[in-house]
Design a protein around this nucleic acid. Structure first.
Lengths: 263, 263
DNA sequence: TGTACATCAGTGAACGCGCGTTCACTGATGTAC
DNA sequence: TGTACATCAGTGAACGCGCGTTCACTGATGTAC
């Protein structure tokens, strides 16, 4: 167990191990679809892989650890999807376009992987307590959104609040809340958060909850018989909320550096 | 089985039956908390009630029927909470106040009954297919919100869209979507829906998804370590979205019937 | 008011199933000298 | 290059558990005359 060198080509057995670890997760993901998170069964996974159930304990010390691995993977893949959408759109497009592209990427991933989506955003699995390792992956999507806002500020693309509706007006004193919020987000050592004024962050959080509310309704069946398919509705709401956070259609890139939020 | 008269005081045995039916649901609700929807077990319910498990089949023909009963109850109680909040605030208050009161009532119920909330808004129970009977109860909350808007229009309290941001602008042609939406909602024979312009309905749907998105994040643990407690954030987002749907702070009751939306 | 019969509530045993996890074990794969 | 030993992957049986549902049954509660 000493951490000596000689670590390079530990291959052969190690490669088999890595492969099987991957296959176990793949099969487990397949089973999520059939039975849901509570229905995920080590025995069934082993059976499908042609192994005996106790063999899985060489790879995961318990069912919960396997669940955790799936959760972390799901957060990461979803985060990557958002980041890639932003990066792909990045050089030529406006911050608004990037924001919207990220929203669509999240939805596309959710629709393609509804059971993994349910695993991370649905009802908590009873008896399962998510360990600390999930925190960072879970933050990837929100951090990606904040990154878009930070860049928008730097490029002068972020509009000030539509002044008819002051942020602290209707809801009473918000400043305290906004500060707490910024502090909480900054805790994750994400410098991007510090570059965005709290008032904008609060709006972003609201847009974030709307995004997931709509996706959840779509995937979990609340729209059955009414708004299905929800593509138009989704595109529209995404556009509305992009405007809400301060990325209106009318602002063109580098045209008017009119206000970088009220500091 | 003939539907003859003599139906009045079938009491005694019938009363016992009604009581036990209620007790079974109560105990089942208690178990939801401990084990979640998939964990709900007829045997455990019976055990807790001091009966033998097969006795439950006199009351519910299967586990799924018991689940359905719980789901319907949950939708109804939640709907009643929203309706009561609106009715209580009604005579003296503005439509905006009523809208916001309904939002807070929904959240309060959800926080008081997180497992029932998860039952209806969390991930679908695998293998369970909600029957048609759930549709009407599920619509109570949205219908209550639409009722607020209808009354607001009648009272001249609904603002036109904030014109810098036309509804059909950013998202492309929305008219088709809005019409489909209105038709879908009207299908439930709810005249209130017909009294509200489609463009406003779309905004209401967006606000509706935001409401549940935020409640779900709060209850399902996405806010752990960042926005908890979420009271301020919730109050603020509710206020923002009330404005978004066309119920701004500044409009006073019966002061300026300036526009009933564009017809 | 009283008897004969039908309805219904609840029992207890059983069927057949699947689960997570442990444990002593056999071989194969790797490592050190 | 070759042998001796340690590490690891996978086996198979077992423990102890809980589940939904069916079925023939015993009593109690209701109803019709």
């Amino acid at each position: 167990m000493t951490d000596t060198g000689a670590r390079a080509s530990r291959t052969a057995r190690d490669r088999a191990r890595a492969e099987l670890t991957r296959e176990i997760k793949e099969e487990a993901r397949r089973q999520l679809a059939a039975a849901g998170a509570d229905g995920l069964s080590l025995r069934a996974v082993a059976r499908q892989l042609g192994m005996v159930s106790s063999a899985l304990y060489r790879y995961y010390p318990s069912r919960d650890e396997l669940l955790t691995a799936l959760i972390i993977d799901a957060y990461n893949v979803m985060g990557e999807a958002a980041e890639r959408a932003i990066a792909t759109a990045a050089p030529r497009s406006s911050a608004r376009d990037r924001w919207i592209a990220a929203c669509h990427a999240v939805r596309a991933w959710a629709k393609a992987n509804p059971h993994e989506y349910a695993l991370i955003y649905g009802s908590p699995v009873p008896g399962y307590r998510a360990p600390q390792d999930t925190v960072v992956p879970a933050a990837r999507v929100p951090i990606a959104f904040v990154g878009v806002l930070r860049d928008a500020i730097a490029a002068g693309e972020l509009a000030p609040g539509d002044d008819g509706e002051s942020l602290d007006g209707p809801a009473g004193p918000l400043s305290g809340q906004a500060t707490v919020l910024a502090a909480a987000l900054a805790e994750g050592h994400q410098a991007a958060v510090l570059a965005v004024p709290p008032a904008i962050l609060v709006r972003a959080v609201i847009a974030w909850t709307q995004l997931y509310g709509m996706i959840s309704f779509e995937l979990f069946g609340q729209f059955v018989g009414s708004f299905e398919p929800a593509d138009h509705l989704f595109a529209h709401s995404t556009a509305c909320l992009a405007t809400f956070v301060g990325l209106p259609v009318s602002l063109r890139v580098n045209s008017a550096p009119n206000a970088t939020g009220k500091p």
